[in-house]
Design a protein around this nucleic acid. Structure first.
Lengths: 208, 208
DNA sequence: TCATTATTGACCACTTTGGTCGGTTGTGCT
DNA sequence: AGCACAACCGACCAAAGTGGTCAATAATGA
């Protein structure tokens, strides 16, 4: 498989990966155009099909690839982080920033995967995605130490509300910083702001 | 304008509106296909262009239309509801359910509008959308009685976290009920579940 | 120098696009 | 019934775009 592509130097590979991720993220599998990808990546049509046998092969490579990155650089780093939900999310936010620097469209791509409907890739995708989701759930939310939460309201509600609020915070940041070049984003200010929200959640949802 | 369309009987009009909303919501302006719309609505191509002069006119009609519905059936009803953020959101959830029954794709359509990039409609859309957003912000979040919140954390953080958590709750419900026929959804169970989350927020974020 | 690999972009057959238009059907009035 | 007029249909159009190919060129390393 993909040996022609793997041999490319990292920089060129990343450009192609990001162009393809972005196109798939924007339009979904069926409507994504390989013409747009090669235009965005600055390579020829022939090159793309020299690297990948078909559009489908390219898509499946990208899935494999992002699942690898997310597993290694993201989920596995959260695993050994104790049972404190907010501590995990803090770490997750940091890691997300690092991955975003290198592959800006990756999270959009993954988000799109969860609603992807195309029958051409449904079977292969579903299996991989389920495995990924389970693993992510396990790392982020498994073995939670709910004894840290205040005890006068149900722990699962606290957990849900925390997740939802922070997810939305993440999306908002992504949208706000979406126009800037990745290296221009002031990560320091962002994480300071984020910590303030974490403090509030800790004060309101945790034992004092 | 649209006089040929306005004259149609309500049922047929709603089918066409929903088909068009769904197609635009799924693919965005540029990629949305009028062919798919007429197929979904069960009308002929000629009919659609008999009702609307062009794809663009259809799109702008839909914008106008949903803004009207949302203003009348949604924002204005929240206005006179006191300054309690959670009470407003409770009311908003109820109203949302009612609108959803009649126009399932409407919220997806509106969500899509906020990220719509097509240059063909950019100018007209931007103006209308801004006006709408401001008005919605005013109704949902204007004149908030923050003295109800606990005073040991910043009120704006409480407000943000509440909004984010509940927005996500809404999206999740939308996704869970997405496959069911609108009239099959158990609104009672849904609103009971929702109230439990509101209770938690009230206990954690409000003065006791 | 030359053999081999990487890369190009014009080209292919095919599908889909927004929109048109001559013709048919339905409706309400006289 | 006969008529006028609007509603509606769907085959059709030129244009654009689709995933994918391939003969020709450029780059590479021995």
């Amino acid at each position: 498989m993909y040996e022609n592509f793997i041999g490319l130097k990292e920089e060129k590979r990343d450009i192609i990966i990001n162009s393809a991720l972005m196109e798939f993220a924007k339009k979904g599998y069926d409507l994504a155009s390989t013409n747009e990808m090669v235009k965005a990546a600055g390579i020829s049509k022939g090159a793309l099909f020299h690297y990948f046998a078909s559009k489908k092969a390219l898509f499946l490579f990208l899935c494999e690839y992002v699942f690898g990155v997310v597993s290694r650089e993201f989920y596995e780093q959260i695993g050994h982080c104790g049972g404190d939900l907010l501590a995990r999310y803090r770490r997750a936010a940091m890691l997300k920033g690092a991955v975003y620097q290198r592959y800006p469209p990756m999270f959009e791509f993954i988000k799109r995967l969860t609603v992807e409907k195309s029958s051409e890739i449904a079977a292969e995708l579903k299996e991989q995605l389920e495995k990924m989701t389970d693993y992510g759930y396990q790392c982020l939310l498994g073995n939670l130490d709910t004894s840290l939460f205040r005890q006068d309201v149900p722990a699962d509600k606290i957990r849900d509300l925390t997740i939802w609020a922070l997810e939305n915070y993440g999306n908002r940041s992504l949208k706000l910083t979406g126009d800037q070049r990745a290296e221009d984003i002031d990560m320091e200010a962002l994480s300071f702001d984020f910590d303030q929200y974490l403090d509030v959640l800790r004060k309101c949802f945790y034992k004092q």
